[in-house]
């Protein structure tokens, strides 16, 4: 009983500290916007360097989805619906969620390790002593870049999965479906609400992953073990948060 209480207290006080940290990050966003060059560099480090994994994953997920659907829908004579089903599944769920999970593994872990090492090697202290606020120069620019990157990466993932290679490749090029039907079905059944919900989800996921990564890195004990623990918990905590949040957001959106 006492153990549970201790775990709960630790969890809640950790949550409190993390919220306090988030307030610090948010209030540093304004000043950070004055230095767009740092943000651009981070957009490259966080966004552009995640492109390869996102593009390849998007392709394969789209392909596998189309294969499964084509197989099943064929039995009901509804093979024209492959495009719609792939598109809806990707735009509503798989796009934001899978991209976010990959992003947490690729960029979130790197961010936590980078900031943890900066802490361990006194770089953050040195900035403070130079009267430079690390929240504004280190944390906030990465946060902004993360929140911008994830929706863009999600869009790229979805385009790869539905159009360029994934679904289209299987349904049209491989199984001999009709391009016109493929696209017109999608056009008729995917509306702006779906796209907006996709965007909202990925923006929220981006903020959450970056919040967790920054918090873990910033508060990592200044040791090799501390940094490695911060990296691991970033991936674990943000993956779980993404899945849980996805459920909550979906429930609200389809009310």
């Amino acid at each position: 009983m006492n153990g549970i209480r201790l775990v709960l207290t630790n969890f809640l006080s950790g949550l409190g500290r993390a919220q306090f940290f988030l307030l610090g990050v948010l209030s540093a966003i304004g000043p950070a916007l004055l230095r767009p060059r740092i943000i651009v560099r981070q957009l490259y480090m966080i966004g552009v360097l995640s492109l390869v994994i996102i593009v390849i994953s998007g392709m394969f997920i789209g392909m596998v989805l189309a294969l499964q659907m084509a197989n099943t829908l064929d039995r009901f004579g509804a093979e024209d619906a492959v495009g719609v089903i792939v598109a809806l599944a990707v735009i509503r769920e798989l796009g934001p969620v899978v991209t976010a999970l990959l992003f947490a593994g690729r960029a979130g872990s790197a961010l936590a390790a980078e900031i943890g090492l900066m802490r361990a090697t006194d770089q953050l202290s040195a900035m403070e002593m130079m009267a430079v606020d690390p929240m504004r120069r280190v944390v906030a620019p990465r946060f902004i870049a993360g929140v911008i990157s994830l929706p863009l990466l999600t869009a790229i993932f979805s385009v790869m999965a539905i159009g360029v290679a994934g679904g289209h490749l299987i349904a049209v090029d491989l199984l001999g479906g009709d391009t016109g039907t493929y696209w017109s079905q999608i056009h008729a059944n995917v509306d702006l609400t779906d796209l907006r919900q996709c965007f909202i989800k990925s923006a929220v996921f981006g903020a959450v992953i970056n919040w967790i990564a920054m918090y873990q890195g910033y508060h990592a004990p200044p040791t090799s073990e501390g940094v490695s623990t911060a990296t691991t918990s970033t991936v674990v905590v943000s993956s779980l948060s993404i899945l849980a949040l996805d459920f909550v957001l979906t429930a609200f959106m389809f009310r």
Binding site: T121, D122, Q123, A126, M127, M129, M130, A131
Partner: peptide, 19 residues
């Protein structure tokens, strides 16, 4: 405090250069 720190320089034990 930040204004004060601009008037202090500090050499860290391990350098603490921005890598």
């Amino acid at each position: 405090l930040y204004r004060m720190r601009q008037r202090m320089g500090m050499l860290f034990q391990n350098g603490a250069l921005l890598t």
